[in-house]
Write a protein that binds this DNA or RNA. Structure first.
Length: 257
DNA sequence: ATGCCTTGCGGAGCAAGA
C-alpha cells in the first residue's frame, strides 16, 4: 500500500497538476493540505472519476485538509481533539486498507514568532502530542503525515542561518517536535535515507527552486506497528519543475498491506 | 527590504503563506 502527503496549495487552482500526479504516482491513499476550499466547493467528482473516494475537512479561503483513498476511507474523524473553540481545518483521520490509521495534518506556520500565531502553533503541537500518545497506547499501525511546518534538523534546510529566527526552525519549535517523535514515532524518510539536502518545499520567491534553496517540512511519521511494515519512502521532487506547481511536493511511503 | 511569488476573495488590493 502506497500512502502519500501533498500540500496542494489550492486544490481548485492545482486540479490538473493533482490529477497528473495521481495518475503517475498511483498512491492508494493521499492526505492533502491547504485545499483552500469548503467541502461543497471541493472538486470531488473529478477526483472520484480518477478512482478515489474523498473525505474533506475544508474551510473558506484558507487551510483545509482531505483524504483520498482507493478503498473508501473508514471511521473518518475531523478536527484535532483538545480545543473545541479551534475553528481552523487542520486535521483529518481515517482508516484505509482496513488496517492503517491515517492522520493527515496541516500544522500552523507560527510566524511571526514570538506572537499569538506562534503561541497557537505551540498549543496545537501540544494537542498533537496528546493525540499521538493515545495512538501509541493503542499499539496499532498509524501514520501521522502532512505539512508539519517544522524543519527538524539543520540538514533539513539549505542554510540554517536563514531560518534561525523563523517559527519553522526555532529551538522551541524543534523541541516541541522532538517531544512528539520521542514518544516513539519513526520519521519514515530518515529511516531509509540519511543524506542531507532532501527537501519538500521551495519558496516561489527569489529563485529558491532553481538554486535548490529548500526545506524539509512535510513528514511521514509512523507508529512502531506501521514502521514494521515500511518498505520504502521518497519525495517526488521532480514535479516542482512543472507549470504552476505547488510550492510543496509529495512525500510517499510504501507500507506492506 | 514588512521585498522577491502565489492563491483566495471579490471585483481593488489585502491576508496569509514559509
Amino acid at each position: 500500500m502506497k500512502i502519500a502527503t501533498f500540500n496542494i496549495n489550492g486544490v481548485k487552482a492545482r486540479l490538473p497538476a493533482l490529477l497528473d500526479w495521481l495518475a503517475e504516482a498511483a498512491p492508494d491513499a493521499v492526505v492533502l493540505q491547504e485545499i483552500k476550499s469548503t467541502d461543497e466547493a471541493f472538486p470531488r467528482t473529478e477526483i472520484e472519476d480518477a478512482g478515489y473516494s474523498v473525505a474533506t475537512h475544508g474551510q473558506k479561503g484558507f487551510n483545509g485538509v482531505a483524504i483520498l483513498s482507493r478503498l473508501p476511507p473508514e471511521d473518518v474523524t475531523r478536527g484535532l481533539p483538545g480545543d473545541d473553540s479551534d475553528e481552523q481545518a487542520r486535521w483529518i483521520e481515517a482508516t484505509v486498507g482496513g488496517n492503517l490509521r491515517l492522520c493527515g495534518l496541516y500544522l500552523p506556520n507560527g510566524n511571526p514568532a514570538p506572537g499569538p500565531k506562534y503561541d497557537y502553533k505551540l498549543a496545537w503541537m501540544d494537542r498533537l502530542r496528546a493525540r499521538v500518545a493515545d495512538l501509541l497506547a493503542a499499539e496499532e499501525a498509524a501514520a501521522i503525515l502532512g505539512d508539519f511546518n517544522v524543519i527538524p534538523e539543520a540538514v533539513d534546510c539549505h542554510d540554517p542561518a536563514v531560518w534561525a529566527a523563523d517559527a519553522l526552525f526555532l529551538p522551541e519549535t524543534r523541541a516541541a517536535f522532538r517531544r512528539i517523535t520521542n514518544l516513539g514515532l519513526t520519521d519514515a524518510l530518515r529511516s531509509v535515507n540519511a543524506e542531507p539536502g532532501v527537501y519538500t518545499f521551495w519558496d516561489y520567491q527569489a529563485g529558491a527552486w532553481r538554486q535548490n534553496h529548500g526545506i524539509r517540512i512535510d513528514h511521514v511519521l509512523l507508529t512502531p506497528q506501521a514502521a514494521d511494515r515500511l518498505l520504502a519512502c521518497g519525495v517526488d521532487a521532480e514535479i516542482r519543475d512543472r507549470e504552476r506547481p505547488s510550492d510543496h511536493v509529495p512525500v510517499w511511503a510504501e507500507i506492506t498491506a
